[in-house]
Design a protein around this nucleic acid. Sequence first.
DNA 1: CTGGAGGA
DNA 2: TCCTCCAGG
Length: 342
Amino acid sequence: MGVDLGPLIKNRRQVKVEELHGRAVAIDGYNALYQFLAVIRGEAGEPLTDSKGRVTSHLSGLYYRTLNLLEKGVKPVYVFDGRPPELKAQEIENRVKQREAARAKYEDALRRGDLESAKTYASMSTRLRDYMVSDAKQLLDALGIPWLQAPSEGEAEAAYMAAKGYVWASVSQDYDSLLFGSPVLVRNLTISGRRKLPKKDVYVEVVPEMLELQLVLGELGLTREQLIDLAILIGTDFNPDGIKGVGPMKAYNYIKKYGRLEEIAELRDELSSIDYVAIRNIFLQPDVVDPGELEWRPPDEERVVEFLCREHDFSEERVTNALRRLKSSSSARTESLDKWFG
DNA sequence: CTGGAGGA
DNA sequence: TCCTCCAGG
């Protein structure tokens, strides 16, 4: 779920798509696929599937989102989670239980014929299976988009890539990559702007926003080490409960007043059950790998059609239309991308 | 979420 | 041309 740093961070800036032109970004692949799976659903909340019953919602989202980014001159590299740290076990168990509870409510809502609730709970019961990730990687290969299997946390790997200059920014909805040291975090990376709020017929304009680590730290008057301590008080994936009764504001006040966890006398008992030294280490010395040279190739149209249309029953008209649009876009003909289509 | 249809 | 709505797989 990530750390709830949102309320503390005022220093966020809306990004225009033009500012992303020509830039490489590392996208948290699991984060992205989960969102597509949660959102792209039918009337009763069922995911899109092919004729063999395999889920394809995430492929649809990944395909059109990626082509849109390419059309705008953005060069994405997708980073997928590897083996989670031991300390993430509790968080993973929590998520499993939440999904199971949501699934029960989903089935109940279906029985009652309450489609609106069904859709909500279906979304909450989203599971990302291995085959879905595998399919996503196959699609990216066909599209000529690089992807990376992180040794551990994808967010950590993306942050490393940004910090080392392999990419300009990391992309995720979560704030964790700031804790992992990403100099720039982009949230809401989407081209088409408006999104419908659940329940009400209200539409909200969704614009990509950019958070810079140094500006955030400067705004809060904290070091990255202190921001990590603050996050531990609120609760991270590695101590999901945090400290009872301590949210973003109280956590901030504690760290501003005492500087670091060791000095907070009144929380000594609560903190004694949290292995915060190990958690700090996950954020400060994460298990990452050098990505090597990233290569963007032109989409292999034959392969894309074979995979999406032949194998997964996508409409060939829609799929080829999208590719044609990319080919005729100005971005595809300029700069480093001109080699794509001769 | 996104593209495309169909109405304003 | 813009906007809203809905199916997509």
